[in-house]
Design a protein around this nucleic acid. Structure first.
Lengths: 207, 207
DNA sequence: TTGAATAAAGAACAATTGTTCTCTATAATG
DNA sequence: CATTATAGAGAACAATTGTTCTTTATTCAA
């Protein structure tokens, strides 16, 4: 490759970003790259933009583009393995960014009971709720019924709106909830996180 | 609370950051916050720094501090109270920290298929895998079988170790996997994240 | 009524910003 | 050889930056 070695510059910038979590100004970039002319630094930045490593952010600033986080085979996977599994760059996906689009309106809520197991929502999970008091029918909502939060599917029939559980196996335990007068929706289910508590290590039965 | 409501400003900034992944300049912050004087904006930023939501970055810039990413965890409503006065006992939680204890050994892996639905692991979810080549029997593991990754329960009988699916309904589709020679474990299932794609808005059926 | 805090605005400034335009080495190519 | 692209430097500029200092408006308690 006799082209300008973009990657030497990129590497230093990636390390810097890992440390400081910020893309520095042209001046500081010049220092980081040992470049005397800011104009040249600017040129390199343009190149990195063209290559998809950086992109413009508001205010004439620059931010990392998706490719910036692409790790060129950071995983030492033996040859022969389907790399298809890794094409999401899992290591560098910030879970927070991934899950939460409107941070100020998003809260977490611990799941109680098994009324929603059919949707893969288990006791102990944390559901991600985006606040809002309306929701489409068929969506999972966090509603307030009798001063208690409950996570259910919003449904509607000729009698009006009601809440449904999703547990086929024990459907008898969870009859539809028809609110006395008003059905108050607290927010919309937009995601879930689960942390499994690794069961006690039973020695012997171990691979 | 007759104090300056920092959180109103913080909320807007958090949403902005979620969108743009950058902390804007004082001028742009002023616009975002509807503040006419950049000096006042600056003051608010200082306050946010004192509270630990922001911190200084090189070049006189500002970046989010750890507290910036904290989320509130909701709790049960205190019975008898009007629904407005939620018990927002704001327990704070950073999702990344909560889920990932050993960042360097943790990867995310997209789930394919429904072989593990009984454990609430659905297609499209991301499982959190902690690397390691041993695991206790009974745990969910990410294993490599025939050069493909598969997420299953590690089991054992007199014939040796094997892998089990967890899908009672279609158990016929997922017979136990007995590896030809060696069963290679890639990592242990320690958590899960799910992002739901809000279904298309059907007008009319909306509360 | 007085007097503080608090919340906000205005003005001003030196430094830095991103950017553009021009110039010069160096290396490769015909 | 001459030429042409590449890699880099220098200078210059208007705009924006973070910051400080001063001045109002509003609130609230003494």
């Amino acid at each position: 490759m006799q082209q300008l070695d973009i990657f030497a510059y990129l590497g230093k910038l990636q390390d810097y970003f890992a440390r400081e979590k910020i893309i520095p100004s042209t001046t500081q970039l010049s220092a980081l790259w040992n470049v005397k002319a800011r104009s040249w630094t600017h040129q390199i930045v343009q190149r990195l933009k063209e290559e998809g490593f950086l992109e413009n952010a508001p205010g004439g600033r620059v931010r990392p583009a998706p490719r910036f986080f692409e790790r060129t085979v950071g995983h030492r996977v033996r040859a022969g393995l389907p790399q298809q599994a890794f094409d999401v760059q899992p290591e560098l996906l910030r879970i927070d960014d991934y899950l939460i689009e409107k941070p100020s309106q998003t809260i977490l809520f611990p799941v109680k009971g098994d009324s929603m197991v059919d949707l893969g929502i288990l006791e102990g999970d944390m559901v991600i709720i985006e606040r809002g008091n309306t929701a489409p029918v068929g969506q999972v909502v966090l509603a307030i019924v009798d001063n208690e939060f409950t996570l259910k599917v919003l449904a509607r029939d000729q009698e009006g709106y009601y809440l449904e559980a999703r547990n086929e196996k024990h459907s008898g335990d969870y009859p539809p909830i028809r609110p006395g007068q008003k059905l108050e929706i607290y927010g919309l289910y937009v995601g879930l996180i689960r942390k499994t508590h690794p069961a006690g290590h039973r020695p012997g039965s171990h691979l």
